[in-house]
Design a protein around this nucleic acid. Structure first.
Lengths: 117, 117
DNA sequence: CCAATAGTTAAGTGTATGCTTAACTATCAA
DNA sequence: TTGATAGTTAAGCATACACTTAACTATTGG
C-alpha cells in the first residue's frame, strides 16, 4: 500500500462513506452546525465530529467556530477536483470510442457486412 | 457503520485507492490485460487481481477472459454516476451562492456600504 | 507432452476505519 | 453561579483493507 495520501485519495475516501455523503449533501444546501449535521444521523455526536474531521482533512469541507458553535460549509474547489478527475478519464475513453467508431465507418461503409460469394 | 453498500459507496471507495486510479487511468486509454495493468505497479499480480475485483464490484470496470488472457475495459456509465453525484452537490451549493449574491446586490446596490452619519 | 505464460484462490498479517463510552472544556442564559 | 448546550478528545474494539506468500489451474507454443 502506498502511504502518501494525495488530495484525490482523501477526497474520494471521504466521499466513499454514506454518512459523510449525507453530511456533504446537507452542506450543499447551506452551512450547518455540527449538531445540525448530526441530527439526521443515527450515531453519537462524537462519531459525527470524527467524520467531520475526515471531511476537513480532505478539503471538501471547511469550518469555523464562533462561541460554542462550529459552522461548517462546503468547499466547492475540492469537489471540483474530484469531479474533473472522473470527467477527464471518461472523456478520454469516449474520445477513444469515437475514433474507433470513425475507423469502423471508414473501413466498412455499409451497415450490414456484405456476404462473400 | 452502515453495511449496505450503495453503488456510489463502491465507486468512490474504488477510486479512493491510488493503485486503482492508475488502473482506471490506464484503461481510459483503451482495454488492457491483467498483466498490462500490473506492469507499472510495484506489487504482485495477485494484489492487482484483487484490486481488479474491487473495480469490477464497483461497476467501474468490466472484463472478459479469452483463452488465458483477461481483457479489462472501463465502464463509463459508473464513472458518470459518481461524476454526476458530485456535480449535483456542487451545483446546488453554487446556486445557493448565486441567490445569496443576488440578494445582497438587491439589498445594497452600492459597491461599498454607505457610512451612516 | 512439457515448459512457459496468464491468471486464480486461500490463508495470513499489519494497519486503517467506523464506531462506542466516558471524561472533559468552553460558552451562554437565567 | 449554576445548569444546560455544543463540542472535543482519548481509549478501546470489531471489522475492513491492502498487501504477501504459496499452491494451484488453464492455455499455448515448440
Amino acid at each position: 500500500m502506498l502511504n502518501y495520501q494525495a488530495p484525490l485519495d482523501l477526497a474520494f475516501q471521504a466521499l466513499a462513506d454514506p454518512t459523510r455523503r449525507i453530511m456533504v449533501e446537507r452542506l450543499s444546501q447551506g452551512p450547518a452546525s455540527v449538531s445540525e449535521l448530526a441530527q439526521p444521523l443515527a450515531m453519537t455526536l462524537s462519531a459525527v465530529v470524527q467524520h467531520l474531521a475526515v471531511l476537513e482533512a480532505s478539503g471538501l469541507v471547511r469550518s469555523q467556530k464562533v462561541g460554542r458553535v462550529r459552522t461548517c460549509r462546503i468547499e466547492p474547489q475540492a469537489l471540483h477536483s474530484a469531479e474533473r478527475w472522473i470527467s477527464e478519464r471518461r472523456a478520454s475513453w469516449e474520445r477513444r470510442l469515437d475514433r474507433l467508431g470513425a475507423f469502423l465507418v471508414e473501413t466498412e461503409p455499409t451497415t450490414k457486412p456484405r456476404r462473400k460469394k
